[in-house]
Amino acid sequence: MENVYENKMKLEFLSKSSNEAFARITVASFASQLDPNIEEISDIKTAVSEAVTNSIIHGYEDKIGIIKVECTLFANSIEIQISDNGKGIENIEKAKEPLYTTKPELERSGMGFTIMENFMDELKIESVVGIGTKITMKKVINN
């Protein structure tokens, strides 16, 4: 990974579902400095929406907590870190399986991590049960 970054930003907000749109629009707006095309912007918005929704639904469940989003712009890529202090993921491999969900009653499709993995160029999931989860994603922008 490149060491020299061009720009950075950090957001903190409550784990309310009304902030899902706020988070993805803000990150997309920041990423626009790299002059991405429409598809790249759309991929970033979708991946951010998935990660933030996971923190809200799974990380904090019915409680309200803080979600942090940190973005770093490099010459031709963006790194996005989304973290919470929620309950953590017990089995990351299982959570990554397409169509696997612990909340089918909420009509969750179990496609969140599959979308993050496919829409972004890199995905790293770090999680400790009872401590929280940190998702790091990277998207190369071919400007």
């Binding site: 993805r24 759309s42 918005k45 979708t46 929406s49 998935e50 929704t53 909420l106 009509e107 969750r108 499709s109 496609m111 969140g112 979308i115």
Partner: peptide, 13 residues
């Protein structure tokens, strides 16, 4: 103009 995986669950339902 935007849909994430929540749309998949909603449509399937």
């Amino acid at each position: 103009n935007f849909m994430d995986s929540a749309g998949i669950g909603m449509i399937l339902g």
